[in-house]
Nucleic acid binder design. Structure first.
Lengths: 246, 246
DNA sequence: CGAATTATTGATTCTCTTCAAGCCGTGTGG
DNA sequence: CCACACGGCTTGAAGAGAATCAATAATTCG
């Protein structure tokens, strides 16, 4: 069944690694990516298999249902991972930030679509090539496995949120978790950037866009947060944490 | 914060492997467990580290927040994996069946409680011991990783269900997925056993017990299913699949 | 058998959705 | 420069689906 998946331009910018541009050794996200466990020789090996790939806002990295030929490291920017039901209902499974690896939950085909929420840079590998490297390198496999296990706990957290939390709690928990994620990649601030739109937040939290907007307004009115263009300032983190109550 | 976690008896039956009882080589769930990738000598090594552990209905294998000292293979029976919020709201993260491995999403402490829904037999390993074996055996690590990735896709499915499906769709999807899981472990029948109670189903699906009961009654009245003691007979699987619409 | 637990069903309430309108920042072209 | 359109966001009013409250029925278990 065909469904309108929105913007799907694929005129992405691709470039093979050349001697002139900085390689894996200088990669900005290396310390926080799966590659952090690799030695320099191993990095060289991997680098030979990698291609940089750049997307602009709205472009699709891969689409749900397509053959899963590639895996990716996110270097810069933010992507939205969505799953679509035949009738158009949408669930955002997550947002990928720099350092994230895309391709853990892969079967033969992508089960989600990945779309750029702004300018995005990724490092792409042929899935088979990457699998071969993984097969031969126990440390890399362990690193991927640790990520998969961590992703699993995140997914469990999200299941609890979707199943048992109120709209206000969902929004509060979302803002806090986003703050934590940004903190982990070095972007530490009480003002949390929101690279995604309200509809994306809604589809991530199992709500409607109107409810998300209302809850943000409510939190703003209660001076728990301050809505600013492109983001949110967390004013009363204690209260938010009490709401998010894990 | 302390919360009543219900039945917590720990008088579980423990037994070291002895020569007289059947070992890993004859294990009923070996072909469907993580152990399926191991050679016989490797199985012997693992067997030396294993203890059988038996629980009766209502007993707790491990509790949320406790130090995660052990990992488990489920040999027989069904367990409920729950996470509790401080205020008592509960989310059932999943049900473990024979062949399932418990301990993928582990950090230092268990993030869920595991309770027996009936008579349960498990194979227990010290977490450190098991980690050492995993570390040294790439095939086992790969097997665990594949399981983790599969669990991740299941978690994603559940997120979609919790976030975007109606009560009736949730119940229909649950019955079908349970049927599939039983089929995969050899228990193939149009009559699906329901080892868990209505409250467990409700907490798994993000509903209340009353809503689950109502939806089951509705499906029964529509002759899509037939409610039988301890289970459900799937009469109109097509209609269920249309409802579950993935 | 009788008590306790679990499940079903009905009546009512409430949270979130749906429908609808208006607002705001941005970009565009006359 | 301003009118206008467009997309994203907010806000309000009405409606629906599931929760809650309450009572009864069916099972399980001692």
């Amino acid at each position: 069944m065909l469904v309108d998946t929105g913007a799907c331009e694929r005129n992405v910018h691709l470039c093979h690694h050349g001697r002139s541009e900085p390689g894996c050794g200088d990669c900005a996200v290396r310390p926080i990516s799966v590659c952090s466990v690799l030695t320099l020789p191993e990095l060289d090996q991997l680098e030979a298999l990698s291609q940089h790939l750049t997307l602009d806002k709205g472009q699709t990295l891969f689409g749900q249902g397509e053959p899963a030929d590639f895996v990716f490291n996110v270097i810069e920017g933010c992507l939205r991972l969505t799953r679509l039901l035949p009738d158009g209902r949408r669930q955002v499974m997550g947002f990928a930030l720099p350092g994230d690896f895309l391709g853990l939950a892969l079967q033969e085909r992508y089960t989600v679509s990945a779309e750029a929420l702004g300018h995005v840079r990724t490092c792409r590998f042929d899935r088979e090539d990457f699998a071969a490297v993984t097969e031969a390198n126990a440390r890399l496999l362990k690193s991927l496995h640790d990520r998969a296990r961590f992703e699993l706990t995140l997914a469990h957290d999200q299941m609890l949120l979707l199943g048992r939390r109120t709209a206000e709690e969902k929004v509060a928990a979302f803002l806090l978790s986003l703050k934590d994620r940004f903190a982990r990649i070095g972007h530490n601030s009480v003002t949390v950037e929101l690279p995604m739109g309200r509809q994306d937040m809604a589809d991530y939290l199992g709500l409607t866009i109107e409810t998300v907007s209302r809850m943000l307004s409510r939190l703003d009115r209660a001076h728990s947060i301050l809505l600013v263009p492109g983001g949110v300032r967390l004013l009363d983190q204690d209260r938010l944490e009490r709401l998010a109550a894990s």
